[in-house]
Design a protein around this nucleic acid. Sequence first.
DNA 1: GAACGCTTCAAACAGGCGTTCGAATGTTAG
DNA 2: CTAACATTCGAACGCCTGTTTGAAGCGTTC
Lengths: 206, 206
Amino acid sequence: MINPHFSTKERILSAAEDLFAKSGFAGASLRQVTSAANVNLAAVNYHFGSKENLINELFKRRLDELTASRTAALDKVRGTRQPTLEAVLEAFVQPALSLASDRGGGSSFVRLLARAFAEHDQRLRRFVSDNYGHVLKEFAKVIAHLLPHLSKDALYWRLDFVSGALTYAMSDFGMIKKPAGISDEQHRRTAAEHFVRFAAAGLRAP
Amino acid sequence: MINPHFSTKERILSAAEDLFAKSGFAGASLRQVTSAANVNLAAVNYHFGSKENLINELFKRRLDELTASRTAALDKVRGTRQPTLEAVLEAFVQPALSLASDRGGGSSFVRLLARAFAEHDQRLRRFVSDNYGHVLKEFAKVIAHLLPHLSKDALYWRLDFVSGALTYAMSDFGMIKKPAGISDEQHRRTAAEHFVRFAAAGLRAP
DNA sequence: GAACGCTTCAAACAGGCGTTCGAATGTTAG
DNA sequence: CTAACATTCGAACGCCTGTTTGAAGCGTTC
C-alpha cells in the first residue's frame, strides 16, 4: 500500500491521510498509522511532534497545492475578456478534481476535507479558514461582480450552498456513484459538468 | 444542562447527542456522556447494551420523527392540484428546520447528521439508508415527475448536490452565520427561503 | 578511528477506553 | 412484611491511547 521508496515523513503522511479519511481523526490511532506506513511508532512524535500537528501538516501539504492551482485558474479566467460564471466555477472545481484524481492519494484527502468540515472542531476550522480563506474570498468577489443584482446576504448563503454541494459530492467520488465501465477521468469530467451547471443555475436563481 | 426530571435513558440520549455532535463518535467517551448526564457509567451498557447501540438508538429516535413529518408534508403537497418544485423542497427542508429549532436539543442532532454523512463508516450509512432511504426515494420520484426533461443521471447528480448543500448549511445553523439581533426562528425561515430558491433553480438548470 | 548529528528502535509510561460484575438500593406485587 | 424484580452504584477488568525515554544504528566530518 505504502511506497517504501518514500521517506519516513512522507509515508506517515500518506498512511495518515488514508486512515484518517477512513476512520476519523479520533478513530484512527497512531499505532494504526505507523503500522500501515511501516514505520516505528515513535517516528510520528519525532517528525511531527504530536498527533495534532501531524493533522495540521497533512492539511497544509494538500491545501497549499490546492489553493495555488485555484488561484492560478482564477487569474486565468480573470484575464479573459468576458469571464462567465461557469468559467469561474470551473476554476474552483477543476483543481479539486485533479487533486482527487492524483495518483498520490489525493482522493483520500478530499474525503478528509469533507470530514473536517463536518467536524465543528474549532481548532481545525480556524486553521483552514485562517490559512486559506483569502482564496475563497477572491472567488466570492469575482462571483459577486458577475451577479450584481444579488444582495450580499443572498450571495453569502448561496456560496455556502455551493461549497456544501461540492464538498459532499466530492467526498463520494469513487465510492458508490461511479458506473462500471467508465474511467475515473471520464467520471470526474461529467461530475464537474453536472456540478458547474447546477451551481451556476442556483447562483443565478431569481 | 441536562434536565434531571427526565429518565436515565433520556438523559443519556440527550447528553450523547450533544457530545457526539461536538466531538464525534470516537471522540466523545462514555465517561464524558454519563458524567454530563449525571448518570452512573454502567447505565449506558445496562440500558443500551453498548456504545454502538446507543448511537443507533440515538439516530432512530430523531430519524423516526423526521421521516414521519417529511412523509406527512410530502403527502400534503402531493394532494394539491399543481405541486410546485418549491413546495416539494419546502416539504423536505421544513421538518429538518423545525427539528433543529426543537427545544429538545434537536439542533445538536442536525450537526450529528452532517457528521454521519461525512463519515464513510459503512455500518452507520447502511443503517441510515436501510431504515430511511425509502422516504428519500419518494421525494426523488416526485421531483423526477416535476422535471420530466431531466435525464436519470442528471437528476441523480443534482439531488446529491441538493442534499449536500442542505446538510452542509444546516450543520452551521446557529454557529457563525446568524446575525446578532435576529431570532432563531427568523434566521431559520430566511435560511429555508434561500435554500429552496437556490435548490429549485439548480434542479431546473438547462 | 573518534566524535558528531540525525534517525530509528524497543520498551515503558501514565492515563483513558468500553465493558463487566456483584453488591446495594429502589420499586412493585402478592 | 416479604419476595421478586428493576435499576443504580463503585470498583475493577484488560486493552488501547499518545507520548517519552535512552540506547542503538547510521553516514558524515574532522
